[in-house]
Design a binder for these strands. Structure first.
Lengths: 239, 239
DNA sequence: GCAAAAGTGTTGTCGATACACCCATGG
DNA sequence: CCATGGGTGTATCGACAACACTTTTGC
């Protein structure tokens, strides 16, 4: 941290990039914007923007999230730093260091694109390819992090509306992990974890048109998940 | 990511800060440098420095690590991004965004301080307080991350020399977590995890001056630890 | 009544814990 | 021969996976 007086630093632009996930129609979707200008004009990219002089990267990310999703209350949403991408060549024009964030939303409003972007759209994760800059890699890193975080945190509730059924919560895991989970065991596991969910007394909702109405739950206060909810290893465990 | 043409960005200085940990005499130590200039002259701080125009933050961190520790081969050491600190007021003079890294070293050489710093020293973690800038918080974040990562990664071997005994590996866990682990069970757990360690055939070393010589092991190739090695919960589990 | 989804019970298996015990070495 | 640390065996307990079963709704 020495060297200030030598002016031994070079100016960098600092931006934020957002990997905003939601679940729509049983598939993981990510919010993408279409670039209006060069470089990469016409290509899809993660939403983001410059960090302003008087705000932190976290503030910038939350501001951009509000602009791109047109959500009224963006203050309570889950927003988490992923990592920082700083390779010299990642922007063809200048030195840009980008702090990437991951955000999780319950099934989201369709209308977005209030920002500078030409257009914004929810895209199925599997279709999100050939993005601008190094956003393919950022998106892949974010996706991996989300899958891993479901194992040992209570993050899954961030994909759910304020009140949800255990079946919906289970579908979050099944969708993100691409596996199927045993319903009774999942239920016991979640309820046995203090602070994961809390019951809404007396409330129930019909989920599939048929069947017994399911009890409703709210997200609890716990952040960690002890013991973790490990995703089933298909057979041999990965090295 | 639009707005380039509007020059709607402000120049930032980008630095790296390093939380370099090692184990010495059964205690977790961190590498600190004494600042020679204002601000915070005379205060201890995490080592770090500016990111140069043609290098990534990772390269800068590895370069600084080599300068501060005077290690000859710094290429194979474990270096990992922690997070980025970007609060506007964190440097009193200018806008500095810092990418923090965590590094783990086996018992390290005493001599350091080849860089710009006035002095460098290994300090017990518990004595590292009142650091310059927001380094108290960075250090606390790094410490928490290291403790958590021991649970579900093979990271503990990064604290050990190239060849080590299972007793030494167990002491890593016990020191970082502040708990004691059952020796036989720890041994089985580690050996049952494929790729965690691999035996050095025929090699053995006396550890405490007395006792049976312990077999030697090398770090394996696995990165993750399935299933995790959970740190014992003293009693009630944390929320 | 039948299908579908929520919720409850039960059982077997596997892993972890908590020990007791043996082995090798230095003093 | 004793203290010290490495290494092995084993019984018990608890968690979890698998699956059968009951309950409540719409059609």
């Amino acid at each position: 941290m020495d060297g200030y007086d030598k002016h031994a630093f070079e100016p960098f632009a600092v931006t934020v990039d957002l990997a905003v996930f939601t679940l729509r129609a049983g598939a993981l979707h990510v919010l993408l914007v279409e670039r209006g200008q060069e470089p990469y004009a016409g290509r899809w990219a993660l939403p983001g923007g410059f960090v302003l002089p008087d705000e932190s990267a976290e503030s910038a990310a939350r501001r951009e999230l509000g602009e791109e999703t047109a959500l009224t209350d963006v203050s309570g949403l889950h927003l988490e730093q992923l990592r920082t991408y700083s390779e010299p060549g990642r922007d063809p024009r200048m030195r840009v260091v980008s702090v990437a964030f991951t955000a999780l939303l319950p099934d989201a409003p369709e209308a977005q694109g209030g920002g500078d972007a030409a257009q914004a759209r929810w895209t199925p994760y599997d279709s999100a390819r050939d993005l601008a800059f190094d956003h393919d890699r950022i998106l892949a890193d974010a996706r991996e992090r989300v899958g891993a975080k479901l194992e040992y945190t209570c993050l899954a509730t961030a994909f759910c509306p304020p009140e949800f059924t255990l079946g919906e919560l289970r579908q979050v895991y099944e969708t993100v992990w691409g596996t199927s989970l045993d319903r009774p065991n999942f239920r016991r596991k979640v309820l046995a974890t203090p602070g994961f969910v809390e019951a809404v007394p007396g409330a129930a909702r019909l989920t599939g048109g048929r069947g017994k109405p399911a009890a409703l739950y709210r997200a609890g206060t716990a952040a960690a998940l002890h013991p973790p909810l490990l995703r089933p290893t298909p057979e041999g465990r990965p090295a």
